[in-house]
Simulated scan of single mutants.
Amino acid sequence: MSARRAVIPAGLAGLFDALVDGVDADRLGLVGKPDPAPFLEAADRPDAEVQLRAHGADVVFPGLTAVVERVCGEVL
Rank of each mutant, 00 (worst) to 15 (best):
M1D: 08
M1R: 07
A3Q: 02
R4L: 01
R4E: 01
R5C: 04
R5G: 01
A6W: 12
A6F: 13
I8R: 11
I8G: 06
P9E: 05
P9M: 01
L12S: 10
G14H: 05
G14V: 03
L15M: 12
F16G: 07
F16R: 07
D17N: 14
L19F: 07
L19Y: 05
L19P: 10
D21E: 05
D21A: 05
G22R: 01
V23A: 15
D24G: 10
D26C: 11
D26P: 08
L28M: 12
G29H: 09
L30M: 13
L30W: 09
L30G: 05
G32Q: 14
K33W: 15
P34S: 07
P36W: 08
A37Y: 01
P38L: 12
F39C: 14
F39S: 15
F39H: 15
L40R: 03
E41H: 13
E41I: 06
E41Y: 11
A43R: 06
D44I: 10
P46E: 06
P46S: 08
E49I: 10
V50F: 12
V50H: 14
Q51T: 11
L52N: 08
R53T: 07
R53F: 05
A54K: 13
G56M: 13
A57M: 04
A57K: 07
V59R: 08
V59D: 03
V60L: 04
V60W: 04
V60T: 11
F61K: 12
G63N: 07
A66E: 02
V67R: 00
V68R: 02
V68C: 04
E69C: 06
C72D: 00
G73Y: 00
G73P: 01
G73I: 04
E74D: 03
V75D: 01
V75F: 00
V75M: 02
V75P: 00
L76V: 01
